[in-house]
């Protein structure tokens, strides 16, 4: 439980948000060309990092917009928040 600074609404309780998992997993450009291994990689395989992780969040009980977050998963400290489409900050 922590506070999240929604880039559209400002600081809100984490309860209002839905976590969307790892960010920047690119949707396959040519899905019909994909092998089973590549589908598995895209759909299921995750880095699941202990430490600084790039992830997606949705303000489900607010503006309902998606955005990105850089968060340290070992202590839940939020390092940066940026909008979808914006360049991720370098560590």
């Amino acid at each position: 439980m922590f506070l999240i600074n929604c880039p559209y609404c400002g600081e809100r309780d984490q309860q209002e948000f839905k976590a969307g998992g790892e960010a920047h997993i690119e949707r396959p450009k040519q899905p019909t060309e994909l092998s089973d291994d590549e589908w598995a990689e895209y759909l299921f395989m995750r880095k699941n990092i202990k430490g600084v992780q790039f992830e997606r969040w949705n303000h489900a009980h607010g503006c309902r917009k998606w955005f990105n977050m850089v968060r340290d998963t070992s202590n839940d400290e939020i390092k940066a928040i940026y909008k979808i489409g914006e360049k991720p900050p370098t560590q």
């Binding site: 998992g21 990689e41 395989m45 995750r46 880095k47 699941n48 990092i49 202990k50 998963t73």
Partner: peptide, 18 residues
């Protein structure tokens, strides 16, 4: 819960979320 951490040491990704 730390399976992915060990997997990453071997250069492997697992379908897990902790």
């Amino acid at each position: 819960g730390h399976s992915s951490v060990v997997a990453n040491m071997a250069g492997l990704k697992l379908p897990l979320e902790s």
